[in-house]
């Protein structure tokens, strides 16, 4: 597999949210606006890259039987780093994302990449994989957040687009499911045409 391929497949072919359906909880829970989605996506990307690096470095040292708990500890450490940094420098964002920051640790995407990719490949490829998958995830969250923000509050990245309130339901829980459902349907249609 070429280096370019490792990097780009996270965006469309194996996009975490739209295709693999991984990491759905933060994808639905934090995307009330485009900015929140982007912030959550970048925080996840950081943890994903760092954990991919460490897992790839220590892969030969870990006995096979305890590898999953070992990966989880590695991931949890980086999540704690993000959590404390965010609390100190971005307290407002931390208040909005709240519970979903510590919950990065149980994002199936991160453990999935550690198990499926980083534990079998060298450090450089693992960084590329983490970067591609993470940015693909961030992209998906930003798109979903943007769609919900436009429909729900009539603005995008906090810039007002039209007068009035918009359909509040898209900011609330049900709108998240419905918006993601239709996004996946549209994406299916697009990818089928090109394939």
């Amino acid at each position: 597999m070429s280096k370019v391929n490792i990097f780009t497949r996270g965006f469309f072919k194996e996009n975490a949210v739209f295709v693999m359906l991984l990491g759905l909880c933060p994808a639905l829970g934090t995307t009330t606006s485009a900015i929140n989605g982007l912030a959550m996506g970048l925080a996840t990307t950081f943890v994903l890259i760092m954990s991919n690096i460490v897992v790839s470095l220590i892969k030969s040292q870990i006995p096979d039987k305890v590898r999953i708990p070992a990966y989880i500890v590695v991931i949890a450490s980086f999540v704690t780093v993000v959590e404390l940094t965010m609390k100190a420098y971005l307290p407002e964002l931390f208040a909005v994302l709240g519970l979903f920051i510590p919950l990065i640790v149980v994002n199936c995407l991160i453990l999935g990449r550690a198990e499926a990719f980083a534990s079998k490949n060298n450090v450089f490829d693992s960084i590329l994989d983490g970067l591609g998958m993470g940015l693909g995830f961030a992209m998906a969250l930003t798109i979903l957040g943007a769609v919900r923000e436009v429909l729900g509050s009539g603005s995008i990245f906090d810039i007002p687009l039209y007068e009035g309130d918009g359909a509040l339901v898209f900011v609330l829980a049900p709108g998240a499911f419905i918006a993601l459902g239709y996004l996946i349907a549209i994406l299916n249609k697009l990818t089928k045409k090109t394939a």
Binding site: P174, F177, I178, G181, A185, N188, K189
Partner: peptide, 21 residues
């Protein structure tokens, strides 16, 4: 055709969430 599988499941979940609201 386009809604088969995952998309329709999400929309259904959305309507279920609406009911729970």
């Amino acid at each position: 055709e386009g809604m088969k599988g995952v998309p329709i499941a999400f929309v259904t979940a959305g309507i279920l969430a609406l009911a729970f609201m």
